[in-house]
């Protein structure tokens, strides 16, 4: 069977294809405009050379966020299949040497050689609050959220504890507590496993015009908070002054936590203890970049459909002649 087209159909086809081409243009323009008009993020600068490792920030964080910590119901539901891990930190609330659902900030220790002298450095570690956080973007239910000011947080009322956010985070930051959250009201044995917890940069304090508890408690002024452009300027000035190094500006495509250190970060990364709840200080490529580049390339998808039908239309009109 050959597709035959009349004069009327020819005109209709031409108009339809032209219309479809025109309709795809605003979509392309809209996609191009994405991200151009965004609000400026708030960032923090952490001057590692000032930190004395007193852990005041750690305790201030725990005190300020006490009300947000989990209160798991026990016994935990039996999990199927058996491989699903039960993660219970409710009996280990005092742990401060790593990230846990009850400890969103901890101090990492590193030793390094500066001017032929071995020095010890202490580094406050918590969520980096990425510019385009994979934990937020790839959360299947939108439980991880990013605010206009750039901070990311996990809504404990709707998080199911699947731990995908931890899996896609370049630093494995979020930590799970079993036996709490929405999954208990759904299919507790078969889907979900608690709630994920991490630093939310004291969003409730920021809303009241206060600074995060860790910044307020620090007697050494290790951290400062402000507009990202100002923080980056200060970070570069400081790095130049101490002949230092910057971490967090480009990692994972850019973050809102900028570290300045007198020691190269690859050396610090070799020195610190890494592992579960203990994030690295190494390279982190932009984990959302490839997906977003493919998304931009997807603009040709409707055009490919239009081109294919235009080809069919051309063949049909040629055969008709």
């Amino acid at each position: 069977m050959t597709a035959r087209i009349s004069r009327r159909a020819f005109l209709k086809g031409s108009v339809t294809i032209a219309g479809a081409m025109a309709a795809s243009a605003p979509v392309a323009r809209a996609a191009k405009a994405i991200g151009k008009d965004k609000k400026e993020h708030i960032a923090t600068l952490i001057d590692i050379s000032k930190c004395i490792g007193c852990e005041e920030c750690v305790y201030a964080c725990q005190k300020a966020n006490q009300a947000k910590y989990p209160n798991p119901e026990k016994p935990f539901p039996k999990m199927y299949p058996k491989r699903v891990p039960i993660e219970d930190w409710s009996e280990k609330k005092d742990v401060t040497d790593r990230l846990t659902p009850y400890n969103w900030l901890y101090i990492q220790n590193a030793t390094a050689i500066v001017n032929n002298e071995e020095i010890e450095l202490t580094i406050p570690r918590r969520c980096m609050h990425c510019d385009n956080p994979p934990c937020v973007k790839l959360c299947p239910w939108g439980a991880a959220q990013q605010e206009d000011n750039g901070l990311s947080k996990i809504n404990s009322d709707i998080c199911l504890g699947g731990s995908k956010c931890k899996n896609v985070c370049p630093w494995d930051i979020p930590q799970r507590q079993t036996g709490t959250g929405l999954y208990l009201d759904l299919l507790p044995s078969f889907a979900g496993n608690g709630v994920m917890y991490k630093c939310d940069r004291c969003y409730n304090r920021l809303e009241k015009g206060k600074v995060p508890a860790c910044i307020e408690a620090c007697s050494e002024n290790v951290q400062i908070i402000g507009k990202k452009s100002d923080i980056l300027k200060k970070a570069h000035t400081l790095a130049k002054k101490i002949n230092g190094y910057i971490y967090g500006e480009y990692e994972n495509g850019g973050t809102n936590t900028i570290y300045v250190s007198p020691v190269p970060f690859d050396k610090l990364n070799n020195s610190i203890k890494k592992g579960k709840g203990k994030p690295h200080l190494g390279k982190a490529k932009d984990s959302m970049a490839l997906g977003n580049n493919i998304a931009k390339a997807m603009l040709i998808a409707p055009i490919a459909g239009i081109a294919a039908i235009a080809g069919k239309f051309y063949r049909a009109s040629k055969e008709n002649k």
Binding site: A3, I5, A9, K12, G13, T16, I17, A20, M298, A301, P302, A304, G305, I306, A308, I309, K312, F313, A316
Partner: peptide
């Protein structure tokens, strides 16, 4: 999928 749907829709409208 979007290419296929665009193709099928236009094919339906035209032919």
């Amino acid at each position: 999928f979007i290419s296929l749907v665009v193709y099928s829709s236009l094919d339906f409208i035209i032919f």
